[in-house]
């Protein structure tokens, strides 16, 4: 039990669409253990992003339950969810989502601002996180002074700075070329080797190949759940 970072049961998410309802997730059950590295795949519209939003506590399910580190989080208030996101979750987005006018360092400090960490400690921890992703020489650059791969590494450093129990990445290489994608995936593999629990959504089998487990969704349901020999 304590080993399970994520446990969702019969998870349902429906969206109202002009009188009708779109069922993005229709009863999904899934567990992810500590230090697992899971890739989520599936055709477009199968519910991958919907699932990631729920796992990241950005959204709440229409039905079913979600335990994050043993805590039931599917019925929490907005602000309680914000606290959970701040403490437990690190997000990496396809479009990086960095603050354009802030330096790499300040971008990475952001989650610590909302964690109420004092400015000196904030800086130290942000420097450490940037060093972890190999950007110690780019700390004072702004996003537009960085390459796509570097931007995504800043985003990864930002996701890590709060030492979250769960790192979520929705198509983190969607905007990157294949060489840079490989670079980013190497960073993920290193983090995984250091004990980080990671869930990555991707369309690319070559990206999914880095994970130890591949979960495939279809029409909002589990289609397959397999171990990846190559990565193990």
């Amino acid at each position: 039990m304590s080993d399970r970072v994520i446990h969702v049961e019969e998870l349902v998410r429906e969206y109202p669409m002009g009188g009708e309802k779109v069922l993005a997730l229709r009863g999904l059950t899934l567990s992810i253990r500590r230090n697992e590295y899971v890739a989520i795949m599936g055709p477009s519209g199968s519910g991958k992003s919907t699932l990631m939003n729920l796992l990241g506590c950005l959204d709440t399910p229409s039905g079913g339950d979600y335990w994050l580190n043993g805590q039931e989080v599917s019925r929490l208030t907005d602000d309680a969810l914000a606290r959970v996101r701040n403490k437990e979750i690190g997000f990496v987005f396809q479009t990086f989502n960095l603050l354009p006018r802030a330096s790499a360092l300040h971008n990475v400090e952001l989650p610590l601002v909302y964690a109420g960490v004092g400015s000196r400690e904030r800086r130290e921890r942000a420097v450490r996180a940037l060093t972890r992703v190999g950007l110690q020489n780019r700390m004072h650059h702004r996003p537009n002074e960085l390459s796509g791969g570097q931007r995504q590494r800043v985003a990864i450093a930002r996701a890590l700075v709060n030492e979250p129990s769960l790192l979520l990445a929705d198509e983190p290489t969607g905007n990157l070329d294949s060489t840079t994608s490989e670079e980013i995936m190497r960073v993920f593999s290193e983090l995984h080797a250091q004990g980080q629990t990671i869930v990555v959504v991707t369309h690319e089998p070559s990206i999914a190949a880095h994970a130890e487990r591949v979960v495939v969704l279809r029409d909002g349901k589990l289609d397959s759940d397999t171990r990846n020999r190559a990565a193990a």
Partner: peptide
Amino acid sequence: TREIGLRKAMGATRQE
């Protein structure tokens, strides 16, 4: 709007 979304994802509460 996106920046607000991001700040919320990073853990900003409504009050913040």
